[in-house]
Design a protein around this nucleic acid. Structure first.
Lengths: 223, 223
DNA sequence: AGACGGAGGATTGTTCAACAATCCGACTCG
DNA sequence: CGAGTCGGATTGTTGAACAATCCTCCGTCT
């Protein structure tokens, strides 16, 4: 949308609701790391810089708190969420439930599988190009596609929320080491098994991947 | 308008955040049917009757919209959500994923199973007493307990959200026929299989129960 | 020197009053 | 009987104001 740094769509145009627009601006600023975990969102400076009133900004804050990407501390303000160890474990608890469930009981259409193949192609290309961000993005796209097989809008929303928190986790790590390259083949396996109709095996493989990824991630940010 | 004899904790006492308190008041009024699906939540009358400002009420509205139990129509106001046929199907899509997942891959502690037995005892007692509300409540408690086996806070929150929408569905039906009595035995089967460690069978049985319940519910509110 | 404590200022939480934009209902007119 | 229109009511948003709370800094005391 607004890849340009410093300029957002319009300061005072007509948007669905101003509050929702403010929330979306903050959401993308957090997603791409302009606002780093733990940093404070001052009501005064933000309302001034976005050109909205404090009340409207506050309404946007409510949404973001509900999405879990921002934390409110009473009488102290709101801060970009800085996921703890427990938060990471909770993220993987959720993923270990809903992703294998979608694999086991979702609708596996061949067009979905083709889309997944395309994502994997992008992932391998990204690996050979040595681009960590592209690999991370492709990985998120693949797991989002897995959830999409469930056919449930709500679960997609939940997954979006979870993946947003995952991005926060990566942003908390000073260095972003190569976390994804050695998992590409597991995604290949996953899609192969799905295409072969081996749902149970696919689900088990997915669960063991999530276990391994969680363990490595926890070790990496081991306090 | 304001002649309602409602007694809530305190109009102007110390609560975490006033907005959160307002949201909780509205939440319970909707849950127990004081506010019926489709009815409008006027900013003016509600802010007056609750003794909060319109801005604070608005903040509460934001939360409730995020929880899906209230719908906002631009320039028209917010209304108690009136779940459609599609919404019901979405509810069951979610449940058909996360409940069997918790059964398949959750932690089955014997204390959890004992708690489930107690819930089933309450359900059978309610059936013999002919109390539909008690049966409905026990049923919700049991399925909430199933999700609790996942160990995931987020999934419990999602389940709470889903069950709140289920209550809205029941409130939309003029007559609340006996929907639960003939499903009690399936809950008994579920717990028995769980206790026997037959997870796959338990999950399949749960899925077929959810299919049947959805079908019956859809037929009952067939427009 | 270091710990304690207390102004003072800054920030949040909440309210109020105001205004533009929009919607709804009733009324008029053809 | 239908269509256009006008006025009132409601929502969306703003700005200012105030109490309550927190943070910072500075002076004091041991």
């Amino acid at each position: 949308m607004n890849a340009l740094p410093g300029e957002f769509p319009a300061p005072t145009a007509e948007h669905a609701h101003t509050g929702a627009w403010v929330a979306s601006v903050l959401r993308s600023r957090i997603a791409d790391g302009q606002l780093t975990p733990g940093s404070k969102l001052s009501e005064q400076s933000l309302s001034a810089s976005l050109g909205v009133s404090r009340n409207t900004l506050r309404e946007a804050f409510s949404s973001l708190v509900g999405e879990g990407i921002v934390t409110r501390i009473a009488n102290r303000g709101v801060f970009v969420a800085a996921p703890t160890r427990d938060d990471v474990q909770e993220i993987y608890r959720v993923r270990r439930m809903i992703e294998p469930a979608a694999v086991m009981w979702g609708e596996v259409s061949s067009s979905d599988l083709d889309a997944m193949d395309a994502i994997i192609a992008e992932a391998t290309a990204a690996r050979e190009a040595g681009s960590v961000p592209r690999m991370a993005s492709a990985n998120q796209a693949l797991h989002r596609a897995v959830i999409a097989m469930s056919g449930s809008e709500s679960l997609e929303v939940l997954m979006t929320r979870v993946l947003a928190q995952m991005r926060l986790v990566f942003h908390t790590m000073s260095s972003a080491p190569d976390f994804h390259s050695h998992y590409v083949h597991r995604n290949v396996d996953l899609v192969e098994r799905l295409r072969a109709g081996q749902r149970a095996e696919a689900a088990e493989g997915l669960r063991s991947y999530l276990d391994a990824a969680e363990a490595e991630l926890l070790e990496h940010l081991g306090d």
